[in-house]
Design a protein around this nucleic acid. Structure first.
Lengths: 149, 149
DNA sequence: CTTGACTCCGTACTAAAGTACGGGATGTAG
DNA sequence: CTACATCCCGTACTTTAGTACGGAGTCAAG
């Protein structure tokens, strides 16, 4: 099984047809459009690509970040040092996410263990496990904060 | 230092004032509005709350999910078994996220290790580490897929 | 050669999560 | 007491990530 139409691709990858076209517009999947009559024909590797995108999204990466992630394996013409740097940054990012998820996990486990499974709930907050100041220690009031995301 | 106005809270928590009001509207932070003249006054615990929300968001939880997460520590009147169930579900979810992030991490480490830091790039894709079929094995073509998210 | 499923493209709409705006009230430092 | 920073509320705008729609072209089975 190789080479499929957009509908089939969308189906096995578990997304809508429009989503595939959307990702194409965003440059997240290389556009194939073998125009034997205008129809897009995809290699089955496209399935993995789309699955990767969904997974990464579920892990908190934006499409932009996923694009960065994907372009790490891009054309061999790129400067390798640049790629290395990008990968290193992403690695730190991922490590950080893991650490924080592990804190949540620990807190959840504690919560679950502490729960007698009947009666009222003891004081056990997941919140305790997080919310510690990272490093933003209140700059000297630069009037009207602005924080994009 | 306890009890602050919305502006101060927003500042230390590292968000905009509007965001705080937005979270209040969404029921993510309990509305304090001690109306000694309409102004909202927050206890400093609100800082942790907001930080928690941002962290969780960064880890791929939606505000709705965060609400679920937070309501686990809610009022002691709730049935404990219900809370336990919710927590267990979330725990599985978190474990899953961690596993997948670890796969990405491994792939990134490999990529970094394989990169000689100069010259052209060897064939090394992060994509390899993911994209394996979860379980959706193409249902018998139920005509016109539909997949919300 | 018709019919029904599938594709094309562009445009428009939606939902989530904020951000910005504007006009009015309030509180506090000088 | 007056300025000026903050606060109030509601409404409107923005970005991200899709979804939906509609009219037309296309392909394959009967």
């Amino acid at each position: 099984m190789a080479d499929m139409t957009i509908g089939r691709l969308a189906e096995i990858a578990g997304v809508g047809v429009e989503t595939v076209r959307f990702y194409e517009r965003k440059g997240l999947i290389d556009c194939p459009r073998r125009p034997q009559r205008g129809f897009r024909i995809y290699p089955d590797s496209a399935v993995g690509r789309i699955r990767f995108i969904r997974q990464a999204q579920d892990l908190g990466f934006t499409l932009r970040e996923i694009d960065e992630l994907l372009s790490l394996r891009a054309d061999p013409a790129t400067d390798c040092a640049k790629v290395w740097k990008q990968a290193t940054i992403k690695l730190a990012d991922v490590g950080d996410k893991i650490a924080r998820l592990q804190r949540i996990k620990g807190a959840l486990e504690e919560l679950i263990a502490a729960c007698p499974r009947r009666g009222a709930l003891r004081a056990c907050s997941i919140m305790e496990a997080l919310g510690q100041p990272p490093k933003i220690s209140a700059p000297p009031r630069p009037q009207r904060r602005r924080r994009p995301r």
